[in-house]
Design a protein around this nucleic acid. Structure first.
Length: 271
DNA sequence: CCCGATTCCTGTAGGC
DNA sequence: TGCCTACAGGAATCGG
């Protein structure tokens, strides 16, 4: 599923094929995604040249002079470039037809993604306004997490998954970075020391960067469309490994629901 | 403001 | 083999 590294990998994969191209036509076969695909997209996008492909959090932005496409892959979405006469499958909801002949195709079986169009500053869009800093930026460090966590009683795992605090840390990376940090995911966010938040911030960055590095492998699946899981799966220490042996202490990995999400951790190594 | 619960959707996995 | 249910997940939104 598209996590932040995979969204960034997607961006890098499609950007060379989109930048400078003009959208000739838009075909919407299914408008009902997380939010309806607006009719304004069909009206406003054709004829526009894509100046840049950017990313903010897990949103992809296609910038044109007339407006911006805001695209989110949800949990099952993917983008592929296909030839002009490739017949769409049942979950191929939207096509952007380019003047190169390529078609950018959005596939999303569970339809948790979205594809929106705005003629205003996209960063002021309700979905983007209020998002926290990028996890790989200098704005996120131990001191920042420490300050933002004061007074919070919610679990630290929920805290780092809160997009207003820091974006891009999904369920998988939250478990993985807490494991690396030796921090118990259920610990109250406001009761963790500055020193431990420094360790956690470094772990979040390391996990995301490592995933991004192997996300380049996922790109081949993505463009080739064979859907194999990326290599990052093999690097997971706790996620999805309930009752299996902790790689550090050999004790069983525990699975527990925290904040309505499956959470994996080692009760011996994380406190 | 903070926090927990609910909601969207459908492929997959597990139980019987 | 096949049916049925539970579950997974990103993130907005609602209710307290």
């Amino acid at each position: 599923m598209p996590e932040l590294p995979e969204v960034e990998t997607t961006r890098r994969g499609i950007a060379p094929h989109l930048t400078g191209r003009t959208v000739q036509a838009v075909a919407v076969r299914q408008r009902r995604l997380r939010w309806p695909v607006p009719e304004a997209l069909d009206a406003g996008l054709p004829g526009q040249r894509i100046e840049r492909v950017a990313r903010r959090a897990k949103y992809l932005l296609l910038e044109t002079r007339a407006g911006h496409v805001i695209l989110h892959l949800g949990m099952s979405g993917s983008l592929r470039l296909v030839g002009p006469d490739t017949p769409p499958g049942p979950h191929d909801h939207v096509d952007l037809c380019l003047d190169s002949g390529d078609v950018l195709r959005l596939t999303d079986p569970r339809r948790f993604g979205c594809l929106l169009w705005t003629t205003r500053d996209p960063m002021q869009h309700p979905l983007l306004r209020g998002l926290g800093p990028e996890p790989l930026s200098d704005a996120v460090d131990g001191g920042y997490l420490y300050r933002r966590s004061r007074g919070r009683r919610a679990a630290v795992k929920q805290f780092i998954m809160d997009g207003r605090i820091v974006v891009g840390v999904g369920n998988i990376y939250a478990s993985e970075s807490l494991y690396r940090s030796g921090i118990h995911p259920g610990r109250a966010a406001g009761r963790i020391s500055r020193r431990r938040y420094q360790v956690l911030a470094a772990a979040i960055k390391a996990v995301l960067e490592e995933a991004l590095a192997v996300g380049g492998t996922t790109l081949r699946d993505f463009t080739g469309g064979d859907g194999r899981p990326g290599y990052f799966r093999q690097a997971l220490q706790v996620y999805g490994r309930a009752r299996e042996a902790c790689r550090r202490c050999d004790g069983p990995v525990t699975q527990k629901v925290i904040g309505q999400r499956s959470t994996y951790y080692c009760p011996r190594c994380q406190h």
